[in-house]
């Protein structure tokens, strides 16, 4: 930018009609946030007119249990799990398929639950972090690997990483460190100690195969 351009900057609002300027800005992003990431209670008057013909009361299979739940047509799986079924181990970091914090397994495949409509998983098996350990409390090997290695820091990303790993191991039971890194590369950790995270998850893959170490 030249010096002259720099000077012109502050004159802009005066030379653009205010209405168009605001409209342009809203379209450009500043206003977008209010239109995304909405949680609906499902009981509200204002919502009912919009539900149309889609049946709302559906049956879901989550962590091996069938659950009847009232789901709006546009509701995401993350919101159903967190707000209807009380499964808050699935986290929301971005609500738009950018971070992987919301990863769950749908028919054994890792999916971003923030970007999956609940109605689309009616006939499928959903597994969340809460469904990994045995009912007697025995941890899944990947969870055990994380505990053994003191993996992760704030752990807000952790359930997503663990679910992504469990899903990846179903198809690739003996990954190298490199392969496993690719397997969880759809997950973001901002505490960023990826080195110990990978060590912990890889230890989990060994435990899953029954590999023990001295």
């Amino acid at each position: 930018m030249s010096h002259d351009d720099a000077h012109r900057l502050h004159d802009v609002p005066a030379s653009v009609s205010r209405r168009n300027f605001i409209k342009g800005v809203i379209a450009g992003g500043a206003g977008v946030s209010t239109a995304a990431y909405l949680f609906r209670s499902g009981t509200l008057v204002s919502g009912q007119a919009r539900t149309g013909a889609v049946e709302r009361l559906i049956t879901l299979t989550v962590n091996g249990q069938t659950r009847r739940v009232d789901v709006a047509p546009q509701e995401t799986l993350a919101n159903t799990l967190r707000y209807k079924l009380g499964l808050t181990g699935t986290k929301l970091g971005c609500d738009r398929a950018e971070c992987g914090a919301c990863t769950v397994l749908v028919d054994d495949v890792p999916r971003y639950s923030c970007s999956v409509l609940t109605h689309s998983v009616r006939t499928k098996k959903v597994q969340t972090i809460e469904g990994l350990a045995d009912p007697d409390g025995t941890l899944h090997p990947v969870q055990a690997g994380v505990v053994l290695e003191q993996g992760f820091q704030c752990a807000f990303c952790m359930s997503g990483f663990i679910m992504a790993t469990v899903g990846y191991l179903k198809k690739h039971p003996s990954p190298t460190r490199e392969e496993l890194a690719h397997g969880v590369s759809g997950n973001l950790c901002r505490c960023q100690d990826y080195d110990k995270i990978l060590t912990a998850l890889h230890r989990g893959s060994e435990l899953a195969r029954g590999v023990t170490r001295g």
């Binding site: 808050t88 699935t90 929301l92 969340t128 972090i129 941890l139 752990a155 663990i162």
Partner: peptide, 10 residues
Amino acid sequence: KVTGKARYAE
């Protein structure tokens, strides 16, 4: 944390 029981604000 590993079992999803840790509760953050939301």
